[in-house]
Nucleic acid binder design. Structure first.
Length: 552
RNA sequence: GGUCUGUUGGUGAAGUGGCUUAACACACCACCCUCUCAAGGUGGCAUUCACGGGUUCGAAACCCGUACAGACUACCA
């Protein structure tokens, strides 16, 4: 029995040839140096920080070079697939503004001429490629049961030999085509394995874009290419898809490094030119007991990118963070070119950190803080409102009700050379400004007075301030002069230098007087500029709040 | 067990043989500024680049070995 007859027996319904597909998916007509890359997740429902980083880079490089970035869904493993998993990924990408040129755009829609972009819809294509291999005698059906494979493995472990289906252990490799046909006709379950032409003694070289030259022994494992469910294994799907979709750069996690000899061999067996590979270091985190480990979806809430969306970290801040960990020279570049953005920066694989970087939430928040501090008040308002509509409806309606007032609040110490930097995320803004809204300034309030705690003294200070000194129309200088006069009248020191030199000669200072006013109207001893707050609150509110304090 | 990769401060890291008495950023500490907080300013924070050996006039950088860590070694991706 010939290989061709065997191939026809296994894949009787496959009529197309590889050449047909080569014609259907021709070389892309792109400018010199244009990169085609992809993000190819399993539909597990959400995107991990490490994957987002890969996706971000996989998009950035085509963008820099005038290439194509596409999204492919790798759903050949039923166990990994979850309901609405594709939508979850699309939503996450959308939230982080990672748009695609081609690929899956929704659960039911795809765009681009190199599809389908969902692997489970490409079954016939994989079969065509597998059939060719069988015809060439480069692949064969394997009837070994999982138990038999397990046996081989324990035997190899016992003999301290290399583990795997290779050489004389590859039993089914030595079957005749007649035996194969007979067992297939009998209905024995089987899978398709590559008949590896590799020799473990020979070396194969990978020129990794990130790590440089890596040498491996050639692959001699007869790897599975088609599973018993008829779908391909990752390695085979990678070959078929990335060849046919004309991918030029494979940008993926470094857990794939050790499989690359298999991939290189697959390309060689078909006579295709292999793509370039860039293996990215794993994103790590430090465990409670001080050891490094992979960021885990289960243990670390900050691993899921939806967390940042919920926290209201601006998308741009996340991107800036990803860029700073992606290219080590980005941060200083951005420092020197503050007016430019990520799009103006040229990504370079050589400037990637090779080892896995620690995920630094602190740093992300810092970047976020700086970023928000540079936003205009109206931009803060718009972004915050958008966030609140999704995650804090009550706050959203308050923001809408007091639009101009809110913008004025966000403008305190903003839009100046050295803006205030206190909002790390949109979710944290309410905690900073709640006291500006009467809706929140109610119920059990906790006043955090400082040095002056005596209620009689506080009453005296506030009464005198309202009756004699406070003028709504005062400008900032006049306002502060009056607070100083108030301090003097009550025997407090109005000059901080003098007070610090002789603290024992006074009951307190203008700082303590200010604190009393500040706490009375906000409950907090730590707020932005008091003058601005009083100005925004206005006389009526201030009086009401001081009255309210009297009742406490 | 095998194959591959990595190891510079609390963290991210720069560094490709002499310009390194190891840049920069985050964190932390101190002081200054200051009505509080934040921000900002100034300074401090690795006598040393996992360890041992070698090459060299000279090494964090090159080579070898050891240790530790990670990945892969599935009909998972």
């Amino acid at each position: 029995m010939t290989n061709k007859e065997l191939a026809d027996l296994i894949f009787p319904h496959v009529t197309k040839t590889i050449e047909d597909y080569e014609k259907m998916y021709p070389e892309r007509n792109l400018p010199e140096g244009a990169v085609v890359s992809r993000f190819a997740p399993s539909p597990t429902g959400f995107v991990h920080m490490g994957s987002l980083r890969s996706a971000f880079i996989a998009k950035k490089v085509p963008q820099d070079t005038g290439g194509v970035f596409y999204l492919r869904i790798e759903d050949t493993d039923g166990a990994r697939t979850v309901e609405n998993g594709i939508q979850g990924i699309i939503d996450d990408l959308k939230n982080f503004e990672i748009t695609i040129d081609e690929g899956v755009v929704s659960e039911t829609e795809q765009k681009g001429a190199y599809g389908p972009y969902i692997q489970s819809q490409r079954k016939e294509i994989y079969e065509t490629f597998a059939k060719y291999l069988i015809e060439q005698g480069l692949a064969y059906p394997c009837f070994c049961s999982p138990e038999e494979i397990e046996e081989i493995r324990t035997m190899q472990e016992l003999n301290k030999e290399r583990i795997g289906y290779y050489g004389s252990y590859a039993k089914c490799r030595f079957l005749t085509n007649e035996e194969r046909a007979e067992r297939i006709r009998r209905g024995d379950p089987y899978i398709i394995r590559l008949k590896s032409p590799g020799n473990f003694q020979n070396k194969v070289v990978l020129q990794d874009l990130v790590r440089g030259k890596i040498e491996f022994p050639e692959n001699d494992l007869d790897i599975v290419i088609i599973k018993s469910d008829g779908l391909p294994l990752y390695h085979f799907a990678h070959l078929v898809d990335d060849h046919l979709m004309r991918t030029t750069h494979i940008i993926r996690g470094d857990e794939w490094i050790s499989s690359t000899p298999v991939h290189l061999q697959l390309f060689q067996v078909f006579g295709f030119e292999p793509p370039k590979y860039a293996h990215l270091g794993t994103v790590m985190k430090v465990d409670e007991n001080g050891t490094r480990r992979k960021l885990s979806k289960r243990k670390d809430p900050e691993a899921a990118v939806s967390y940042y969306h919920q926290q209201g970290i601006p998308v741009e801040a996340v991107k800036l963070y990803l860029m700073t960990i992606a290219n080590t020279n980005f941060e200083s570049w951005w420092d020197q070119n503050p007016t430019l953005g990520i799009d103006d920066f040229k990504f370079d694989f050589k400037k990637m950190s090779v080892s896995g970087s620690l995920f630094d939430l602190e740093k992300l928040l810092n970047i976020s803080k700086s970023y928000i501090s540079r936003m205009k008040a109206t931009e803060v308002y718009d972004s915050l409102l958008l966030w609140a509509k999704e995650f804090d409806q009550e706050f959203a309606s308050i923001l809408e009700k007091y639009k101009d007032y809110s913008i004025a609040i966000f403008n305190i110490e903003r839009e100046q050379k050295k803006p205030r930097k206190d909002y790390a995320s949109f979710s944290s803004i309410k905690d900073c400004v709640w006291y500006m809204y009467d809706e929140y300034f109610t119920g059990d309030l906790e006043y955090q007075f400082g040095k002056i705690q005596d209620r009689e003294e506080i009453r005296k200070i506030l009464k005198l301030y309202l009756e004699k000194y406070y003028q709504e129309s005062d400008d900032k200088d006049t306002w502060f002069q009056k607070v100083k006069q108030l301090s003097e009248e009550l025997g407090y020191c109005s000059d901080m230098k003098e007070y610090k030199a002789n603290p024992d000669q006074y009951p307190g200072s203008v700082a303590d007087i200010s604190t009393v006013i500040r706490v009375a109207v906000t409950t907090s001893a730590m707020t932005p500029d008091l003058y601005e707050i009083l100005r925004l609150l206005g006389r009526e509110r201030i009086e009401k709040r001081i009255e309210l304090l009297e009742t406490k």
